[in-house]
């Protein structure tokens, strides 16, 4: 069980990547909006799409952790 908990903790580390990715994407989007405020609608939708994709990795890590915890 204890090794399973450690494995789950490691799996949840995917969240780091997603966090960094979303942070970078949002920062860039803010810069883009500052530069071109009139294009904010398109930038927002692109950002939303990118964030959803980046978040997906974290979610997969989280699901894996859950699987290890409750199934393993």
């Amino acid at each position: 069980m204890s090794i399973g908990i450690i494995a789950a903790g490691v799996a949840v580390f995917t969240g780091i990547g997603a966090g960094v990715g979303i942070g970078i994407a949002t920062g860039k989007a803010s810069e883009a909006i500052a530069r071109q405020p009139e294009a904010s609608g398109k930038i927002n939708s692109a950002l939303l799409l990118g964030c959803a994709m980046a978040e997906g990795t974290a979610i997969f890590g989280f699901i894996t952790a859950l699987l290890i915890l409750f199934m393993g």
């Binding site: 959803a52 978040e55 997906g56 979610i59 997969f60 989280f62 699901i63 859950l66």
Partner: peptide, 13 residues
Amino acid sequence: LALCMRLFGNILG
């Protein structure tokens, strides 16, 4: 799969 897992994972989390 990604759509399903994303929604599920987020709400469950």
